[in-house]
Design a binder for these strands. Sequence first.
RNA 1: CGGGGCGUAGCGCAGCCUGGUAAGCGCACCUGCCUUGGGAGCAGGGGGUCGGUGGUUCAAAUCCACUCGCCCCGACCA
Length: 562
Amino acid sequence: MRFSRMFIPTLKETPSEAEAVSHRLLLRAGFIRQLASGLYIFLPLGYRVMERINTIIREEMAGIGAQELLMTVLHPAEIWQKTGRWEEIGEEMFRLKDRTGRHMCLGMTHEEIMAWLASREIRSYRDLPQIWYQIQQKLRDEARPKSGIIRTREFLMKDSYSFDRDEEGLEQSYRLHEGAYHRIFNRCGLRFYQVESDPGMMGGATAHEFMAPSPAGEDDIALCGSCGYAANVELARSLSPETEAGDLPYEEVHTPGKRTVQEVSEFLGLPPSRFIKSLLYIGDDGPVLVLLRGDQDLQERKLQRIIGPFRTAGKEEVVATLGVEAGFIGPAGHKVRIIADEALKEGVYVSGANRADYHLKGLRPGVHFDAEWADLHIAKEGDRCHRCGAPLRIERVIEIGNIFKLGTKYSVPLRAYYLDENGVERPIVMGSYGIGPARVAAAAVEQSHDQDGIIWPRAIAPFDVTVLPLNMADTETVELADELYRALTEKGLEVLIDDRDERAGVKFKDADLIGIPTQVIIGQKSLRQGLVEIKDRRSRQRELVKREEVVERVVDMVQGSA
RNA sequence: CGGGGCGUAGCGCAGCCUGGUAAGCGCACCUGCCUUGGGAGCAGGGGGUCGGUGGUUCAAAUCCACUCGCCCCGACCA
């Protein structure tokens, strides 16, 4: 491909709206353009990267026997109504009517449609198992699109769905995907973790996410370097640091105006971990008092899993429900449901005395109050692993893929049943598995760049090699460049030749920005000695090679580390 | 949806507080000369209803109201 004929609008300056590294670089290097909030156009370079990622995905999906198909973007409402998600999902779903007034939506995922297809076509256990996948546009009216290509309203997604007879079959399909995902992300050159995740509204029990570490991410994961425990902090368990031991006499103390743990802690000279935080939430089934150790914070997802949707209680609600104002609430003597974090099971604590301006020392769980025990706190850096006790670390990550065991959540309402050997009708057991190719690309840029630009992993770079004839006015340079371009292309490499009539500096800057892994630089000075320079974008190392040996050397480089 | 910020030429910005003499700079773009190993130089040139609407005023990029759009933090994220 000739640079002069390819649409590569590079930018010297960063558009002001771009914050995330991947957003800035993809914009500057001419890979993407923004159409509106959360809507991005992939320019030729960006599209090439996406296609290379998709090719890797297709190869690995084929490797586990998955079959590619293509569904529609527009869905009739009835199918979504059957599973209840038409109502469950709020404003995030784009909805519209066709000309006859029929309700439709734009597909944000395809569990329903896949199950619908299966319900019509799969009759017998002999038809199972199946794995169907597509690489299809998804639309979600995101509350807050952000970070360039990482969170958009319209995005490409590889989504596959497995159909099995039973849990055992599902387990196998799940493992196949797990393996394929590891191969895909490795081939794409990403650093990533597989972590336990919250199945959430997808239903089902087991779910994992594939997470690429990056400060531009939106999730945090907890990792144990010792036993390998890895989980999204939404559900990560952890042991809080031991609290200071020492008995406290059971007594009420006057704490005028001291409400927060911080204030009372300083006032009484005791560490926050000796306190019980009492927080009132209002769930669908009424108020719930949540108890946490003073040095911990509530992981709302964990509470939600126990009591469903909830909100914090207002000031008046606190007084009306508990008879005391916030700041002096204690765990004892209330009629509301009380759920306490497990970290409070042992020890002697200080808490509110249920009386304005007073706190209570010497509180013992099981003696002075009772509660349901649950894991409620957010796992923090420095907490210990609940499995092996080693310290946990927390990392910020981009979710690049996920795998869910769905079970029969979609097959039952959509009547996707098959007949087993005994002629018994059984629901198909499903799994669903996603990968966001654009996030893979963004994560690659986030993880692999320097001051000058992108450094593409070889397997997903828009081109394998770029040829830079520095002086287009020099016939010998141009001729050699063309010759090398042809020879490299014949070797099966994707080559971009910068044939623009630009100064050397411009070509160097653009080449580094765009991030093609190997640069072949043809300058007059070296050429007079019959030498051509080969530069590795990542290491920045240059080597001078005899002009006859360039092709062989470049092919080695490209294939060597691919 | 709550909080914050920003809309002036393709991009990055100044001007706004203190209304008039304020449509300006750098880059990019076009023409010519020159130059060719890290975003050159000189000369000439094109391009902007100052996001939109309404108001205040003799006069609005500048003040006021409304509105649209974009970004960031949070909530949400099937």
